[in-house]
Design a protein around this nucleic acid. Structure first.
Lengths: 146, 146
DNA sequence: TGGATTTAGTTAGCATTGCTAACTAAATTG
DNA sequence: CAATTTAGTTAGCAATGCTAACTAAATCCA
């Protein structure tokens, strides 16, 4: 005990609705930063998987990003066109290819990540530390949900 | 005091990055539910403002949703085409129009909201109440940030 | 072994939803 | 009353989702 009584349990539906709204508005805000970078969130996110999670096939990338194969195929084509990643045939499987980030891709990702997140981070800095910790935990919970 | 020590402060950039990812993945999941409804998240969100916040001009709607006027103009056209809202000239201002949800629009919104949120709510139900409360608070914090 | 099925990826085409640029028309300002 | 501002539209572009239909390689099984 010694804890203050927990706030009353919000009904799951209400929480779901508020989370949904919050996510929409957050992403719309962050999209503007992405835009300045000229890469776009979907490609950036895929690139991020490649850089932090290592090279992999297009299908694996599609699964990681929860999009369909044709969507990822096109995203990778875009990354290639932009010089951010390369596609090489998989030596083990003639159908598959492996996608690698280029040095330029790594560089852009780190820059872009910083920029994308800068606005948000700046605002997070103004929150009390406890709130920031709460949001960090919330992010994990949300990832766990999906 | 009596509180456990707070978890170490996560650096704002890391929190921002995790929030960003979580939001992307959450919305991608929820989009599938929207899709079954046949309305699309942007239109649904605008409709929601009309239903819960009351009728208003297209400009006001655009500001509420943080999109540009042409975008909202097109969304409202779509809502009208779908029979979910109507546009009437503003009696006070010949340039402006007022957008009202239709009865059908209200009905669809409530159904859609339920469906959209159902998957998420179902998962939220399985969380301990404290986590759910945390997410509710997180949603508010996020809205406050943007 | 060899035909049938599955799996990886691509291409084509569509819908949604962002944007800017350029326009019309009404309201406001000086 | 002319100039400017404001509300909204239209046109056109870009990114990113999707399904359908295809090719080609791998696997399965009889």
């Amino acid at each position: 005990m010694a804890e203050r009584a927990s706030p009353p349990a919000p009904p799951p539906t209400a929480v779901a609705d508020r989370l949904h709204s919050a996510a929409i508005h957050l992403l719309r805000t962050l999209r503007r930063e992405d835009q300045a970078l000229g890469v776009g969130p979907a490609k950036l996110s895929a690139l991020s998987v490649l850089v932090f999670g290592g090279p992999r096939s297009i299908g694996a990338l599609a699964r990681a990003e929860h999009v369909r194969l044709p969507t990822m195929s096109r995203l990778v084509s875009g990354l290639e066109r932009d010089g951010l990643a390369t596609r090489t045939p998989d030596p083990e499987d003639g159908r598959a290819s492996r996608v690698y980030p280029t040095a330029h891709g790594r560089r852009v990702l780190h820059q872009g990540r910083a920029r994308r997140v800068a606005t948000l981070a700046r605002r997070l800095e103004q929150l009390p530390e406890a709130d920031r910790a709460l949001l960090a935990r919330a992010a994990d919970l949300i990832e766990g949900l999906t």
